[in-house]
Structures are given as structure tokens and as C-alpha cells.
Design a binder for these strands. Structure first.
Lengths: 131, 131
DNA sequence: ATAAATGCAAACGCTTTGCGAGTGC
DNA sequence: GCACTCGCAAAGCGTTTGCATTTAT
């Protein structure tokens, strides 16, 4: 077994922790950097890659050009704030049956889907001046 | 006014033409290169950017890491084949009301969404050996 | 001359990899 | 000594931009 792996451990704990979902590599890197005295981007990347390979986390694309990762237990969709970038998750999956419809209308055998709602989070929706 | 602009013209015509949807820059570049004797990637990019700026086309993200563009009249979703990458469009928009649900459950003011189904196109679903 | 389109090459942002050094066991 | 993690630096990949050239008016 591996012995000390501060960076990797921190990354793992980050996913274990709080309600934070959909980490980007930047965010993970920054968090790791803060938690320890410093951590390299590539090390964080490798930790994340390993976790993804093991199936512990899943990579998702939120349409902002960056890769995001989240713990891969349940399947759900996301809402991303156009203004601040905050991401929240949508409780249920509204698409289970929609997939069937798609299959009928296009002939594609739908195996998965990828949905992101965008809009404004409660906070940004209130502030008169957005970005 | 601009005078001769072979590349740009070809790009525009490509969008006007056939049933081809969701062009990637590569595809546009290749098509333009074939149509004329040659065309530069950046020129194609600029033509596309201009069209996007004018609202003639819309950029969409199909989750394959590349930018895709399509004529921006109606709003619809996509199905992309995991095997060959072919993209088909899904007739209706199944999400109009779903967005309302999301808004209720998350508090986000949903202004847009971005959905891509993935799976296997009819052809790839039949062939026993896929990529 | 002027304005515009083009090609070329290089910059960029983010992801990914090669490699050498440090370190528990 | 070995296996493993880490950091550094550089490579990749796709997108974007700067600049000099050509060309139709």
C-alpha cells in the first residue's frame, strides 16, 4: 500500500466532505493548496484521475469549458448560475421517460444524457447589477 | 462592403445547405478546404465567429470537447452517437415544463438549458463491433 | 490609398504526460 | 532497494489573436 499521500488524501476528503458538488480542478487545487502548504496541479489531477478510474467520482461537463467532478453515486442534473457560476443539483431525474421518447423519434439507442440548466441563482437573481 | 470572400462565403453556404447540423470547426474547415483549393482554420473560425456574433448561428456544446455550430432558428436538443459521433436532433423540446420544476426545487431562475443525449445511432447499434 | 479577407504563426486556457527527486517501508 | 507520491516543466488539443500580405475598389 501507498504510504503518505497528503495531496491525494486531501482531494479524497474534499469529495467526502460537505455539500460541495461539482468541483473543478482549479477549485480542488486551490482547496488542496490551502489545506496543505501547497500542492501541485498535476498531483491533484492525478488524484482525481485515479478516483475517476476507480469509479469513485464522475466527471461532468457543465458547459463552462472546464471539467468538473462529483461523487458518482446517484444520477442527477445540474443548474449553473450564469452570473456567479455556482452549481446546484436538481433533485430528481426528469428525463428517464424523455429518453424513451428520444429513442422513438430518432432511432438512437439512448444510453445516457447530459443536461445542464443555466440561469441565475437566488442571490444573483436579486442583485440588480449582475456581471 | 467586403468584396471577395471565398472562405467566408463557403462557410455561410455550408450552414444554408443540406440537413447537416452541428458542424464542428474541423468539419467546417475540412469542407471549406475541399470546396475551395484550401482554406485556413483561422479564417473559418473568424467566419463562424462573425456569424455567431450576428446571431446567424448558435454555438452548442455536445460534450465531446469541441465547439459545434448550428443555424439558430429553433430550439431543440441533440442525440450524439457514442460510437461514431453522429449527431441527430431531437424534434420537440421536452423540457419547457421541466425548467419550471427545476426553478421550484432549486430556487434558480432558469433561463436556458443544455441537453445532450448520448447513445448509439441505428447503424452503430446494429454492428456487433463498435470502436 | 483604403478597407477587407486571408494565411501563417504564435498565444492561450485547460488538460495530460514525462521525468527526476524525495521518502516511507 | 522498491514502490510510490510529488513537483516541475513541457507537451497536447482546441480555440483565439496579432500581424503582414494580398486584392478589389
Amino acid at each position: 500500500m501507498p504510504r503518505p499521500s497528503p495531496v491525494t488524501d486531501v482531494v479524497k476528503s474534499l469529495f467526502g466532505g460537505e455539500a460541495r458538488h461539482a468541483w473543478s480542478l482549479d477549485e480542488l487545487h486551490e482547496a488542496a493548496r490551502v489545506a496543505l502548504g501547497g500542492a501541485d496541479y498535476s498531483t491533484v489531477f492525478r488524484a482525481v484521475s485515479a478516483m475517476e478510474r476507480e469509479g469513485a467520482i464522475r466527471r461532468i461537463d457543465l458547459g463552462d469549458g472546464k471539467a468538473h467532478y462529483e461523487v458518482g453515486d446517484d444520477h442527477h442534473e445540474h443548474v449553473r448560475c450564469d452570473s456567479c457560476g455556482q452549481v446546484a443539483e436538481v433533485p430528481g431525474c426528469v428525463l428517464e421517460d424523455a429518453a424513451a421518447g428520444v429513442q422513438n423519434s430518432t432511432g438512437f439507442k439512448v444510453t445516457s444524457h447530459h443536461l445542464v440548466f443555466t440561469g441565475l441563482c437566488p442571490a444573483c437573481a436579486e442583485t440588480p447589477s449582475e456581471l
